[in-house]
Design a protein around this nucleic acid. Structure first.
Length: 542
RNA sequence: GCCCUCAUCGUCUAGUGGUUAGGACACCGGCUUCUCAAGCCGGCAGCAGGGGUUCGACUCCCCUUGAGGGUACCA
């Protein structure tokens, strides 16, 4: 029975790497019949936005990841926001201080910077080591009086520290290489290290599954656990997901693309851009020059204004691109892990049931969007009709599609006609013509040329003929339409394409759309004929 | 720089001393077709390099190279 936890720092939307960690925490717990806890690590007052925790929870929920204990649900080990547990941490920090395993210090930023520079000049890693004699409370008061910030550091021993990791095996560290790290910041908040160790114990966490970026922190955590007399949990450090350009796949990627676009944009109205992003011009300049980064909504808004596509990093990005949560879950679970069964397309339940913690692999992996698309197609095919419909409606609402207002019956027909589609966005695009006013259909000029005007307007002539025939049709059904169109093609000894394509352009404005018979049936005969007339009028005169 | 980790087709991976190195996605052909998809059939493609160990190394060891992570009063 494993008790696991996902412990995000609520700084914005949940991104793909975080989602994978969250997923494996869930899988591990559920596979062993254990418990899955969500804990918000909001100990950095400057980085945590008030809405971020909600966003992360929404994203987890969308993915179908439910926690047994945590925010909004509660539980015996709460509160589950670290910012609400300060008194607990203070008690533990005091214990370390009393035991002489932690000490106060009050270096200024400049002093620290100088020490770092000295170390790098000596071609050595910067190491903070405790003074021979720890500052007393009186020293602390004196330092405070001088206006110095006071922090608490934890004493690292010189011994070898062994981390037993499920993914990586035995990893050895030399305590001599590790700094006395800070456990309490000058604002009184604990750092990640302290809060994490204390909470894992208090919440009964047995298995810590997290990203590889935490591997170097682990020896420090283990020593601290020993100092407190805590049990050391089982560790599993997952390999990282890297993006095409190399480097960890993170939200920085999106900022990078946006920054490049802003710099490239000619005659850009910076004031307008700032207004749209809800930030100041100064903040934009700061963003362009340094490494300050606007928050996610601001980045999204500005990208929308500049009409550029940002790489998908956050879970919502994939939602908006028309991926199913089932697809993401399946795909993410296969990154750095391979199930013991010879099967790729799986439901979350199957992944949980067959989970084998020895089957993680150590290699960093690249996120292959094309494969994700292929997986999405499989999951669209696999999902029961009702479930797909509900996912599709969620999607339409999210992207503000006019189709969001359509009734279920029509949407079901659309979904059926789109069997084989790869994303929900594709389905939406292909069926937009159904939700466009008859006189608002936009014609793709290239398609018009190719299908209607070419060869002396043979397509247009076909349209005129079809209009008569369709108008004369007394029973409108997919079948009767098909019979009619096929009949004409046969009679004229031409391919069905010559008949269907002009019609398609007339009703959709483009040559890419749903199958033509279903299209007409769903659009309705009146609208079809209206659109044909409009097309004929529009292009006959030219 | 220093510390840590990793290394099988383009990508995700199977493989744990003896395999024709398997699958999936991508890609390339062909078939099918009212468009786009989908579907069906077929194909291309890999053990980073160099040393050992061994009767035998993709598999074990060492080095090189390459990649990633850490090096914060971020997590």
């Amino acid at each position: 029975m494993a008790v696991t936890r996902f412990a995000p720092s609520p700084t914005g939307y949940l991104h793909i790497g975080g989602a994978r960690t969250a997923l494996f925490d869930l899988i591990w717990a559920k596979n062993t019949g254990g418990k899955y806890i969500l804990r918000m690590e909001d100990t950095d007052q400057s980085r945590n936005s008030p809405t971020a925790a909600k966003q992360v929870m929404d994203d987890l929920s969308w993915l179908g990841i439910k926690w047994d204990e945590g925010p909004e649900i509660g539980g015996p080990a709460g509160p589950y926001f670290q910012s609400q547990r300060l008194d607990i941490y203070n008690k533990y920090i005091q214990r370390l201080l009393d035991a002489g395993k932690a000490y106060y210090c009050f270096d200024t930023a400049e002093e620290l910077e100088r020490m770092r520079k000295e170390a790098s000049d000596r071609k050595q890693n910067f190491l903070y080591r405790r003074p021979a004699k720890f500052p007393t409370l009186a020293d602390v008061e004196a330092a405070k009086a001088q206006g110095r910030d006071v922090v608490v550091r934890f004493c690292m021993p010189d011994d070898e520290i062994i981390v037993n990791d499920i993914v990586r095996g035995e990893v050895r560290f030399n305590g001599k290489d590790l700094s006395d790290f800070i456990i309490q910041k000058s604002d009184g908040f604990p750092t990640y290290h302290l809060a994490c160790v204390v909470d894992d114990e208090l919440m009964g966490i047995t298995h810590v599954i997290r990203g590889q970026e935490h591997l170097m922190n682990t020896p420090g955590h283990i020593v601290m656990q020993q100092a407190f007399g805590f049990k050391t949990p089982v560790y599993a450090h997952l390999s990282v997901i890297v993006s095409e350009g190399g480097g960890k796949m993170s939200k920085r990627e999106r900022a990078k693309v946006l920054k490049a676009a802003i710099k490239k944009a000619q005659g850009l109205d910076k004031e307008k851009l700032a207004a749209i992003g809800g930030i100041t011009i100064a903040e934009i300049d700061e963003f362009l020059s340094g490494d300050a980064m606007p928050d996610t909504p601001a980045i999204d808004a500005m990208a929308g204004y500049l009409k550029i596509e940002l790489p998908e990093i956050n879970i919502v990005d994939f939602f908006k691109s028309g991926f199913l949560p089932e697809t993401l879950v399946n795909f993410i679970a296969l990154l750095g892990y391979s199930p013991p069964i010879d099967k790729e397309i799986m439901t979350l339940q199957e992944i949980i049931d067959t989970f084998d913690p020895t089957r993680f692999n150590k290699t960093n992996c690249l996120f292959d969007r094309k494969k994700l698309v292929a997986f999405n197609m499989e999951h669209i095919k696999m999902l029961p009709e009702e479930k797909l419909l509900s996912r599709y409606k969620d999607f339409l609402k999210e992207v503000n599609s006019p189709a969001a207002k359509a009734d279920d019956l029509l949407l079901k027909k659309v979904l059926k006609a789109c069997a084989g589609a790869r994303t929900l966005a594709e389905i939406d695009h292909k069926s937009r013509f159904l939700f466009t006013a008859d006189d608002k259909v936009e014609y793709d000029q290239k398609d018009v040329e190719k299908v209607l005007l070419k060869n002396d307007g043979e397509g247009l002539a076909m349209l005129a003929l079809l209009k008569e025939k369709l108008a004369a049709l007394d029973k409108i059904s997919e079948e009767s339409i098909e019979n009619l169109l096929r009949g004409i093609a046969e009679q004229k000894q031409i391919g069905l394409g010559k008949v269907a394509q002009p019609l398609r352009v007339a009703i959709c404005g483009t040559t890419i759309s749903l199958p033509i018979f279903e299209s007409i049936e769903m659009l309705g005969i009146n609208a079809t004929i209206t659109r044909m007339e409009r097309t004929i009028n529009e292009y006959s005169k030219k």
